[in-house]
């Protein structure tokens, strides 16, 4: 009421002013280009495409299903499907994207593409020093620029990547088991058919039965 609050406040700011020169722990500033702090694990900014193995083009997990393209709220993803197929990580032939563009000037880092992707093919990156002198071409990333190895994914998000790998391994094992049982069943059926067909007089009469399996 008599201005003692003002004096108290002035004393406080004076203490901060003097203190910032003598005690370094007061200054919380990180002087960015020279000093850096490691990003926390949940950091995310823009999506990238995960690939397995050494060759990015062959190992790309993306199967061009276009779910992310449809779900993307600001519509920053553009995908063109291939006409031929290449084998995915389980060895099953899949179509792949001949074009996969993300305009990071449009992207709002919402992570919805990551949530909806059934193939664990698109993940969020932590790279933030993306400034460029070309604001159109420089910010439009094609699939080569977007492709990053699974090792990179492990480096930036270790926990999440381990979960993903476990899930994929399980899926692969399941697929292999399924393929194995299917193959066994097919073999058994073929054998049975052969034994059945022998007395009947030849397996040529039921070719579609084998193909069905």
């Amino acid at each position: 009421m008599f201005g003692e609050g003002i004096l108290k406040g002035l004393a406080e700011t004076a203490r901060n002013f003097a203190g910032s020169f003598v005690s370094a722990e007061r200054l919380t500033t990180v002087q960015y280009p020279e000093q850096r702090i490691a990003p926390i694990e949940a950091t995310r900014d823009f999506p990238f495409l995960v690939y397995d193995g050494a060759d990015w083009e062959a190992g790309l997990r993306c199967v061009a299903c276009q779910i992310c393209e449809k779900e993307c709220p600001p519509k920053c993803i553009y995908i063109e499907k291939s006409v031929d197929k290449k084998p995915d990580f389980t060895g099953r032939p899949q179509i792949y994207p001949t074009r996969f563009d993300i305009d990071i000037s449009v992207c709002m880092s919402c992570q919805i593409c990551v949530e909806v992707c059934p193939f664990e093919a698109i993940k969020m990156d932590t790279e933030f020093e993306l400034s460029t002198t070309d604001r159109f071409g420089g910010l439009l990333y094609d699939r080569k620029e977007l492709a990053k190895s699974n090792e990179h994914y492990h480096k930036i998000h270790p926990t999440e990547a381990a979960e993903v790998d476990a899930r994929l391994a399980e899926e692969k094992a399941k697929a292999e088991a399924k393929a194995k049982t299917a193959a066994e069943a097919a073999a058994a059926k073929a054998a049975a058919a052969a034994t059945v067909a022998k007395p009947a007089g030849g397996s040529e009469s039921h070719p579609e039965e084998e193909r069905k399996i």
């Binding site: 901060n16 002013f17 910032s20 020169f21 200054l27 002087q31």
Partner: peptide, 10 residues
Amino acid sequence: KGLGRMQNRY
């Protein structure tokens, strides 16, 4: 500079 120091900035 002064305001920065009062707010514990550089």
